[in-house]
Design a protein around this nucleic acid. Structure first.
Lengths: 351, 351
DNA sequence: TTTAGCAATCTATTGATTAGAGTGCTAGCA
DNA sequence: TGCTAGCACTCTAATCAATAGATTGCTAAA
């Protein structure tokens, strides 16, 4: 059923009000604050209709109305006023990204922090599937007599490096040759390919002296392809969830925080539906097993060269300031997708 | 005033009971569960005396007694039964540390995780002052045409590297010479010395082509000497705080979580009193500004070669399972202080 | 189609009452 | 001198009834 213009306005009023006050709104309150021209009784009729349509509910008979998940969805898609970031918000973002940012990890941390600060919600940032990254080069760097640092450079950044124990002291010359060998062996290929291919190069084909390093790199890549996803999820401001009135109920708060603590569970929810740049999951959309409390998750993805690099977003009550959240996410998503954009993503080089 | 043997036993009974039940204990309950030989009236007298001595309080007149911070302190120092780790706990620890552990960061994460899992409390792990680390070598590694990775190897581990933009494509030969130069310039010295010394080498003394790299390394070290401490603090299981009955009060819970969120505040508290291997801060000891809720912080430090490397511990209600907490911390502290101990700290090298 | 009016419903708060827990004190006993 | 039984006293927590207030849905009239 199509929704009339007046109904739309009333629904918007209810949502606007609920987003700021967190309390059910009554027909007379709507009249006073939003519609001076029509009576509360008329509004009541409209409210009843909106309730029939599934956009509103009453906590109990003698209470006002609150929006349903369906209402929020409509709100975000059609009703919501679009807004721009304020000068202050923009400068907050810039401030965060002007710090030293080197590894992928740092980008995630900064992103999550700034989103949480501006929206006052729990935020999350994660990296896209690293498996599809293409390796550009591999280097062994000698650290001391018997250990080396393995550095794997990919098109999406430097992988968190690992040290390996070589057992014996080896010459610089050997390192040079090894580096040439491993780069030749791995460069230009996707991690997925390398790990996925069955018994790709039998070890026999490899010169004996390189077998150990080959195995080492292979093992590191395999690690990344599998369980590493979890560590590349950064949460910020999980305590902020408690500021929301919907989580004054301690049981709900606990459920929420537990879910956040077990980051692993979040990954599939966050990574699903990555087709759109802004993604809204609300109410039933994001059931994680049983214990998932009612909440909304808004995420934005960022990509470079058509390749999905990762995403970031907020987790909070369904009643959240969508215009603000979406404008922030939109900005940051664009910024991260394009390093030139506002200097974000580039380390500051001056003093 | 000295405390009689029977008072000690009664106090211990009160604390034992309170640690497990979280409820005030009455004189008759003490009699039933711990002292069948003497009457509840006698126990009441002793309890009144212990209250006068400052070891017990009553929430209200018709309630039982609960221990004070003072009581816990005495408990940990004298009364508490020492216990060993169970086989299961040991295997949990081993399981955590058998994963790939490379950078300092990973050690902190694993340490925090395992402590939190075993004690069921919020845990924390941090790195000691990096400023006193002695630099062993510095390396620039070429990543692509115009960027390089800076690796600083110290006696406490590899510093998280920063990428720098070189602007122009430089030859491998240049890298080799640069690496020799920076290592000569910085190796063997404490970060603190380098940063602290005023205008140590005027840039004029340095060959023009090396000035940029010199400045880069200097800047990185300066960063480490200052604000970097915060990122080297890992928290785990902050939601666990909500499982404790003392934080069913939402205001208290919020205060606690906020404090944990603002990791920065924690640093001075954690790093104070690092003289002892096990450190107990309880009640008033750890007032952080105004909002700090009543809680206990138990930390252990670990060191290598007499040098303080960092610490780890738990944060929870004053009523916590001290015997367990302390035995875990003690074990982990020893393990981390000595890499040979139980294979902890060494990456597994097999499959 | 809108609106005024009103009965009906439900929540939230208050106050009073009660049952129960636990203490402190007193007086008697070994 | 130290222990204990007994009892009055205090405080909490739970229950219940009563009340005030909020908000609706419905009806009938404009």
């Amino acid at each position: 059923m199509a929704i009339s213009g007046r109904k739309e306005k009333i629904l918007q009023a209810v949502i606007d009000s609920y987003i700021t006050t967190a309390a059910p709104i009554s027909s007379s309150e709507i009249k006073d604050k939003y519609f001076d021209a029509i009576s509360s009784a008329t509004i009541r009729n409209e409210l009843a209709a909106l309730e029939d349509m599934g956009y509103l509910v009453q906590p109990h008979t003698s209470a006002g109305r609150i929006p349903t998940a369906e209402a929020y969805r409509l709100y975000v898609e059609k009703l919501m006023p679009r807004r721009k970031l304020s000068r202050q918000e923009l400068s907050t973002i810039k401030r965060y990204f002007n710090r030293k940012i080197t590894e992928i990890d740092d980008v995630l941390k900064s992103t999550a922090k700034v989103i949480s600060e501006i929206t006052n919600l729990t935020s999350v940032a994660y990296m896209g599937n690293i498996e599809t990254a293409v390796i550009k080069s591999v280097k062994f760097v000698k650290i001391d007599e018997s250990t080396a640092l393995v550095i794997i450079v990919t098109d999406v950044g430097i992988l968190k490096d690992a040290t390996v124990n070589l057992g014996v002291d080896v010459s610089q010359d050997f390192f040079d040759r090894v580096n040439q060998f491993v780069t030749e062996a791995f460069a230009g290929r996707q991690i997925l390919d390398i790990v996925g291919a069955k018994a790709e190069k039998t070890l026999d084909e490899i010169k004996a002296e390189y077998q150990a390093v080959y195995k080492t790199v292979y093992k590191i890549l395999k690690n990344y392809a599998h369980d590493e996803a979890v560590s590349d999820l950064v949460l910020e401001g999980s305590a902020k969830i408690l500021e929301q009135p919907e989580y004054t109920n301690l049981t709900k708060a606990k459920a929420m925080l537990d879910m956040l603590d077990a980051k692993k569970q979040l990954v599939p929810v966050l990574k699903s539906n990555d087709d759109f740049s802004i993604n809204l999951k609300i109410g039933k959309d994001n059931e994680i097993g049983q214990g998932m409390p009612e909440c909304a998750i808004v995420t934005a993805t960022f990509s470079q060269g058509g390749k999905n690099m990762g995403g970031a977003g907020v987790i909070g009550p369904m009643r959240m300031d969508y215009p603000k959240v979406i404008s922030v996410l939109d900005y940051i998503s664009k910024a991260l997708s394009n390093p030139e954009y506002g200097q974000i993503g580039l380390p500051e080089e001056e003093e």
